[in-house]
Each structure stands twice: as structure tokens, then as C-alpha cells.
């Protein structure tokens, strides 16, 4: 009985067989990751709809949620097409499990107070702005097209959230403290944004993907400027959380999906 608890063979770390992706699998994974970022972030933002700190800001945040939901839909349509297994964009959004989502850990973090929502959004907008600006030069015409359209929208998002960072940081004592707390809490999820996977490497060689190291330099510069203007600091602890590239998430994602997916899973063959 107890023998069952003892591993027969000791596990050797990194003993997993190397998976060699082909270009199609890489493109599917890459596109899915981008789509998931926008989908999950939109899901979080839309929790604010009707509950924003004042009407104009409620509308602005909902607008961002709508823009990125649109991006996500286009990307999921393309992912489904690349995969070529007859799945639709809705199948990909509503019928994948927790370990099959590749969004970055940052976007699934709870909204918290408005400072946390804005900090999360600003970090992501800055990433998306530089990322999609580059991706609009991709040799993959579909990704380049989606990216070019997205950059126009993200330009506004980044301006909006960066200006709120400054208002909070250089506003009242309370708003300053709230923003500093939000940054301290979220900073550990920003490292993962720039992590290159096998899919990234394969597609970078093909001129399809973006070099995240280059995006990182621009992101760091923009965020450093915002933090300085806002009179807040990045935390001293630079330890970064990771895992989403392998579909390993924080505990929050399961709840997001449970809520988002329940209806199509409850009535499986229904059309909506």
C-alpha cells in the first residue's frame, strides 16, 4: 500500500522529451497567447462596467474592454484557422481548460482598487503598444493587419492609462499610496511579458514574431518615465513570477473561466 507513495524511479529534472514544434503549431500557440491576453484582460475590465469611479471613466474603461475584446476575437478566428481542426473562435474561448490558456499572469490579476486596475492596464498597454507596433511589420499578413488596427486603439489606451498613473502618483496622498501599493503588488508579473518561447524563436526566424528583448527596452523606458513623473518607484524586490507560457497560472484564472465559460458548457450544442 505505502509502496505506491514511493516513486519507483527518482524523477530526473528536465527529463521531459524535447517537443519540437512545427511552424504551424508555433503560429497557433503564438496567436492564441496574444488572443488570451486581450480576452482575459477584457473580461477583467468589463467587471468595472457600470461601477466606474465616474461616468466618463466608466465609459473609457468599457471602451478599452471593447477594443481589446475585438482584437481577441480577430486573433482567435485566425488561431482557429491556423489550427485547421474545425474549431471556431468561440470553441477556443469557451471550451479550453485552465491549462490551455496562455495569457500572461498580469492580466488575470483581480481589479482591486482603481489604482491597481490602472497600473495593470498601463503595464499591459505599454507592452501592447510597442509589441503591436513591431508586429505590424510581420511577414504574416493577418497578424500584421490585426496589429496595425490594434496599434491605433492602443495608442489611446496607453495615453489614457499613463496619464492616470501620473494623476494618482502626483495627486493626493491617498492616491499616491494606492498607486505605489498597486505597483508593488503587480511588478512581479511584468517580467514574464518578455519571455521568449520556442514558438517565439521559430517565428522570429521566419520574420513573423517580434523580438521581445527589443520590446522590453522600450517598455522599460516608457514605464520608467511614467513612474518618475508620477513620483512612484518600482519595488526593490525584482523577483519575477512566471508560468503562463506553459499554461501555469495563478489561482484566479480558474474562476475567470468558470464564470466566462459556464453557459456554453452547460448547454453544449446551443447556438447563441
Amino acid at each position: 500500500m505505502f509502496d505506491l507513495l514511493v516513486p519507483v524511479q527518482p524523477e530526473i529534472s528536465n527529463n521531459q522529451p524535447e517537443i519540437i514544434m512545427n511552424k504551424q503549431e508555433a503560429l497557433f500557440n503564438y496567436t492564441l497567447r496574444l488572443a488570451d491576453n486581450s480576452l482575459i484582460l477584457s473580461q477583467r475590465l468589463s467587471e468595472w462596467t457600470g461601477h466606474g469611479p465616474f461616468l466618463e471613466e466608466d465609459l473609457a474603461l468599457t471602451n478599452i474592454a471593447l477594443d481589446i475584446l475585438g482584437q481577441s476575437k480577430s486573433l482567435l478566428e485566425y488561431a482557429a484557422q491556423v489550427e485547421g481542426k474545425g474549431r471556431t473562435e468561440d470553441d477556443l474561448a469557451f471550451l479550453r481548460g485552465e491549462r490551455e490558456f496562455y495569457n500572461t499572469l498580469l492580466v488575470e490579476q483581480p481589479n482591486g482598487d482603481y489604482a491597481k486596475t490602472i497600473a495593470r492596464q498601463c503595464f499591459m498597454d505599454a507592452f501592447d503598444y510597442y509589441f503591436y507596433s513591431e508586429l505590424s511589420n510581420s511577414k504574416d499578413a493577418t497578424l500584421a493587419g490585426i496589429a496595425a488596427k490594434s496599434v491605433k486603439e492602443i495608442t489611446y489606451h496607453l495615453r489614457h492609462t499613463s496619464s492616470w498613473m501620473v494623476r494618482f502618483g502626483d495627486g493626493t496622498e491617498e492616491s499616491h499610496t494606492r498607486l505605489q501599493n498597486a505597483i508593488d503588488e503587480l511588478w512581479r508579473y511584468t517580467g514574464e511579458l518578455f519571455e521568449m518561447t520556442e514558438a517565439d524563436e521559430i517565428l522570429l526566424k521566419e520574420g513573423i514574431a517580434v523580438d521581445l528583448n527589443a520590446v522590453k527596452v522600450k517598455w522599460e523606458k516608457h514605464i520608467a518615465e511614467v513612474l518618475e513623473t508620477a513620483k512612484v518607484q518600482a519595488p526593490e524586490n525584482k523577483y519575477m513570477q512566471r508560468g503562463s507560457r506553459e499554461g501555469k497560472h495563478t489561482e484566479y484564472l480558474g474562476y475567470i473561466l468558470a464564470e466566462m465559460q459556464y453557459l456554453p458548457r452547460a448547454i453544449p450544442n446551443a447556438k447563441w
Binding site: 473580461q43 468589463s46 467587471e47 471593447l66 475584446l69 475585438g70 481577441s72 476575437k73 482567435l76 473562435e89 468561440d90 474561448a93 469557451f94 464564470e259 466566462m260 459556464y262 453557459l263 456554453p264 446551443a270 447563441w272
Partner: peptide, 10 residues
């Protein structure tokens, strides 16, 4: 957050 399709959500 519970809309059952991407289109319905949008």
C-alpha cells in the same frame, strides 16, 4: 462576464 459567445459579449 457570462455572455455565451464572443459576439454576444461584444
Amino acid at each position: 462576464t457570462r455572455a455565451p459567445s464572443l459576439r454576444a459579449k461584444i
